[in-house]
Each structure stands twice: as C-alpha cells, then as structure tokens.
Design a protein around this nucleic acid. Structure first.
Lengths: 351, 351
DNA sequence: TTGAAAGCGCTAACAC
DNA sequence: GTGTTAGCGCTTTCAA
C-alpha cells in the first residue's frame, strides 16, 4: 500500500511494473470494456501495490475538466451562508467534485478578480450565493469563457444562468398576512442590501400586502439595512425613538431582526407586548427559547443541494436547454416575538 | 479585451501575434529581468488584446504547484468554523491562493477520502480545523506524499505539523477563577467532543481549578456533550433536575452553553440568579442582549489568519525548521449569565 | 485486446 | 535578449 520513495508513482511506473503500456493502465482505470481479465487484475494489483493515484492536474490538462466548482459568497460570516455551502458541499462530495470557496466581502473588484481566477483554474462551473453579476462586472470578464453558472437568490441580469431562489415573495406575503390578521397596521420594514434581488422582492411583498390591506406605507417606517446585526440594531433604535412607534417591525433577514430585538431590549421596550418583531431566514439560533423569533424558514441546506445538482447537470448536459428557474418554498414560523398590537390585544379583528 | 472565439488563447497565440517565442512571453509574464523594453511592451499589449491568461492547470502540471490549499473542517454549521475560514480565506486571497473546502461531518472515512482526493489534486498545503489525524487515519494515507500541514485547535499525534491553538487552558482557568471568586463551588461541566484536544484541555483546566480551590469534582456534575446546541440542551435539562442542582454550569463551547440556557429557561430556572452559565468561543450572537453569555473570546478570525500564514510560509520554506506551535490568547468576557451563587449573593468571599 | 505516439499549455534549461 | 527544445502525467485516436 505504501511507498518509501517520496516521488509519487506515475502511470508509467504502473505500466512498467505490469509489463503493459500506459494506455492499457489508463483503460483499466477508466473501466473500459475489452480488456483481458488477467490484465485487468494485474494492473489493479500493481496499482494498489504502488499506491498509484492518477494526477488530477495532468488529467485536468488533458481532459479539460477539473471536477472543481467555484462557489462565490458575499459574506461567509452571515449564518445563512454556511448552511447553503453545506448543502452544496455534500452534493459535490457525492459526485466527486471539489468546492473552491471564494468570499468577496461584497466587494465588486474582489468578486471580479475571483471570477477571473476561477476561470483560469478551469473550474467546471460556478455557483454565486446571493451574489450577482452586474453588467459592469460582466463586461470585465470574458463571457465566452465563463463556465456554467448557477445563481442563488439573486438573479444575474447580465449573463444567462440557472437560478434557484427561495420564494421571497410568497414567504413575505404570508408573514404580512399573518401580521395584518393580528391587527397590525403601523408596520415598519428594515430593508436588506440594495443589490439583492431577494431583498427587493421581500420589500415589494411588504408594500403590496400593505396596499392590499388598505394601509399606507409611511416613508419614515421604511429603513435601510445591509443584512448585518448592527444595521438592525440601528434601525431598531431609530424606530423605537419615533414620536409614533410602529406596532410591528419586519426585517428582511433574521440577523437584522435580532439586531432590532437587541435595540428594543436595551430600551426596555417589551416584545411582543408593545412591538412585534419578525425576520426572514430562520437561522440557527432564531428558534432558541431566548430569542424565539417569528420568521420565514428558508430551506437553506436544500437550496445548496438543488443549486449544486442543477450545476452538475448543466455541466454534463451542456448549454443547450434553456436556463432553469427553480423556486423553493419558504414557510412561516410563528414564534414568540409576534402578537396582536397593544390596543387590539384580545380582539383579533380583520382578516 | 474580449474575444469572440470560444477557444481561449494559449501562450502560442500570444507568441505568434508578437512574432516572438513562447518562452519570451512566459518570461515577460513571469517578470523576468533582461527583456528588451519594447518586447515587454509589445507582449503586454498583445496579452491584453487577446485577453490571454495562463492556464492554471498547465502551469500546475509543469511547476508542480497549484496555489491551492485544502481546508478540512468537521462541521461547517458550527458558528466557530466560518469565522476561522474567513481568516484563512482572506489570507490566501492576499497571496493568490485558493481554498478548497472540505467538510467531513466529523466522519473519519470521509475525512480520509477527502485527504486522498486533496493529495491527488496536488494541493500545496492542508489546514485541519479542529480535526486531527488519528494513527489509523494516517495509516490509510501515504504520509510521504502529504503536503505541509497546519492543524488548528487539535494536535495531530500521528503526523508532524505546525499547530495553532487558542490557549484553552489559560482561558478556562481564568473563567474558573472568576467563578470561584464569585463564591461558586458546585460547578458543573459539560464536556466537548471526546476527540478534541482543546476540549480535553478545557476540561483539565476545570478540574485543576476545582482542585486548586479545594473543591471536589462531583462525577454527576460532569456531563458529555458533542459541541452541539442539542447536547447542551440535554445537559442543561439533566443538571436542572438533579436533587442538588449546581450553582454554575460551564460548557466547553458556546453552542452547548446556549443549549443549557434554553433548557433552564424552559424550566423557569432564573439565570444567573439561581444558576450561572458560561461558555467558550464568543460566537456571533453570544454578546447579544437577549443572550449575554459570559464566555471566553477566541480570536477566531485571527486563528485562521495565523494558520494560513504559517502554512504559506511552510510551503515556501520547506520542511526544514521544526514544527511550530503557536498559541493565541483567549480573553474572559464577563456578561449577564454569571453572578454570585444564591446563598452568597451580596458577599463576594474567597479569592 | 493492446500499444505507439501525439499533444493538452506551460516553464526551464540551455543555446545562440 | 531571445529562441529551441524537452518534458510535467495523463488520455486518446489509430494501428496492429
């Protein structure tokens, strides 16, 4: 099994040891038909004896295939990301592909540089997690050399790609319907990153639900955020100090909702008694008894799995079929941070 | 900048376009001296014009270097992991190296398979995050072909490697000293994964501190855990239902401490009034007002940075110098989940 | 059923 | 200063 020499054996070593040609060894290893049983057995034996494994680089050069896919994420510290990566990773692992992780810190130039680097590396495909390609970024790339691409939660306008997304609209709509049914009408919204299509969709769903219910969207009740806890904390502080506070605050993701919760707690505003709070994502600790955040559960792991599967399929099939759009359902999780608004407590009017 | 043809240009195309040899193009791109200024300028111009980028695979085959490092983690969903990865990733990015992420789900066979795969891929180095190589695992590998290795927080007995670790002993000792000074003596401990050397060290520090203070370690007060929230929840439930409950519970990581917190909350045990709780890690939400967990802050991002830097150095330098052991300081963060024990409330005796 | 030979795209000796 | 040439280790026609 093991060798003492540090030089790893090549296919020539195996061929020599067997007294056959390298082509034969290659064919055996590739599982080709029409090989004498005893030849096959001999080769396999020597392969094992020498501990031979084909060099992935040589093979990559020859076959123009690396069995690696690049995964580009914006922020790996956001709890949403690792779970998606987990799903991608498991799927790639099953199919013997590797995952090259690239974290851009949401900087456009770093994203472009990474993409170039991945193209040089001949990755077989690319997954962009909550990251898209702006026309500017696409222009800096050589699109003709771009491998198959799958985007998650943010559609790329500039480039054709398969796309898998959580149903942000449906999820946010059901959350809003629930809040409205509870009797809320002064509902604030903390927006996500401006560049995110899913964040935009969540916001649109919020506006649409308000409109449907016949309520105005107060400009002062819509704040900007960037998907971080801190931006949620700032938003929460700002909303809590309004002359007329909202009865509910909806954030475009859980991290910001948790930030809001923190700000309210520090100001002594009781949740959900005075103000209800809800998020979107259902991250790891959202369901913890100490937080118990009402939110929309995204199938994060599954999103990763579906994205990876779609990509591998596309790599096999080639560019022929039209880009796919896959939508995954999001589910409302009602927990402890939401309740009827103060004045309506007890009488759940409106539906 | 862009080409219409889908075939990417090779160094021969550039050479032809310039009327020079491929070697010259290569030399220009490698920044070699002794090149005529006008030749250099011409080459650079054509490179840009054709959008030429050297094929990383061909270069890897030729130079036997991939500028990729494999990062093997146990559980990417554990909030500790992404922050370490973040530090690694930033550092690799600066030095133009790629990160191949491998998540083993803490399964030994998957770890070994991944390691083999990474060796075939000719990664230049390996970082094991809270993962070690058991002698059995090492035996299944060809150690002669193992690239430079850096382990984080768990030393590999079976194989020489650089090692970077957080000072678990010092961190846990300071936490225990603090708790003892508060007047606690019935202190329970929730252990981490049995295979983790850092978990073992935290436990030893706990025992040593108890002994130093002259207190016995009640076997019933030491529970097993596996670093997950759930195991913390189970431990918390078990401890809360003891005939004589502890006055403080220390968990080997934050996730388990948060699980304990959840279990206590659900049983209505007031924290820190009846029981103090502390963890280890200082994960993202530990400091949030709703959790406010007393814990030991690990410099997670920095750990990743140091590990990556050490690895890259080792890759450059070669195996000569003796393996390094780098220890990073952990800092006690006193927050809201710890207080003097019930009977001692108000009089902080003992030091 | 097997082997010879070409070549994937690049770099490093060594000539000139 | 620049060019020629020989591979890195593999797969793949094509011929035997």
């Amino acid at each position: 099994m093991r060798r003492r020499t540090s030089r790893r054996p090549t296919i020539l070593d195996v061929a020599a040891a067997c007294g056959v040609s390298p082509a034969t060894v290659s064919n055996v290893l590739a599982g080709k038909k029409h090989i004498a049983v005893q030849t096959r057995a001999l080769v396999l034996e020597k392969v094992d004896e020498l501990g031979y494994v084909a060099s992935a680089t040589a093979r990559a050069l020859r076959m123009n295939r690396t069995w690696s896919v690049g995964v580009v994420v914006g922020d790996i510290a956001n709890p949403f990301t690792p779970e998606v990566i987990h799903g991608i990773e498991d799927t790639l692992w099953e199919r013997h592909n590797n995952l090259i992780l690239c974290s851009t810190g949401s900087q456009s130039d770093r994203k472009v540089a990474y993409l170039k680097n991945l193209i040089d590396k001949h990755v077989d495909g690319l997954i962009l997690v909550t990251q898209s390609l702006t026309p500017d970024e696409a222009a800096a790339l050589d699109l003709a050399r771009l491998p198959p691409l799958v985007t998650i939660n943010r559609k790329s306008e500039a480039v054709p790609s398969d796309h898998v997304a959580i149903d942000s609209w449906g999820g946010m709509s059901s959350l809003m319907d629930y809040l409205l049914a509870l009797g809320h009408s002064r509902i604030a919204f903390v927006k996500g990153l401006a560049s995110s299509t899913s964040a935009a969709e969540r916001y649109r769903a919020y506006r649409a639900a308000m409109k449907r219910a016949g309520f105005a969207v107060h400009p002062g009740l819509v704040l900007h955020g960037d998907y971080t806890i801190e931006s949620g904390t700032r938003a929460g502080a700002q909303l809590a100090s309004l002359p007329q506070v909202p009865t509910a605050i909806v954030a475009a993701n859980d991290l910001m909702a948790i930030g809001v919760l923190g700000a309210l707690r520090e100001r002594g505003v009781p949740v959900p008694d005075d103000i209800s709070v809800a998020g979107f994502d259902d991250i790891l600790l959202a369901g913890h008894p100490l937080i118990s955040l009402t939110t929309i559960a995204q199938p994060k792991y599954e999103t990763g799995v579906v994205a990876a599967r779609t990509l591998l399929e596309r790599i096999e099939i080639g560019p022929r079929p039209a880009p796919k759009m896959i939508k995954l359902d999001a589910a409302l999780k009602i927990r402890g941070t939401t309740a009827p608004p103060p004045m309506k407590r007890g009488n759940r009017t409106r539906a």
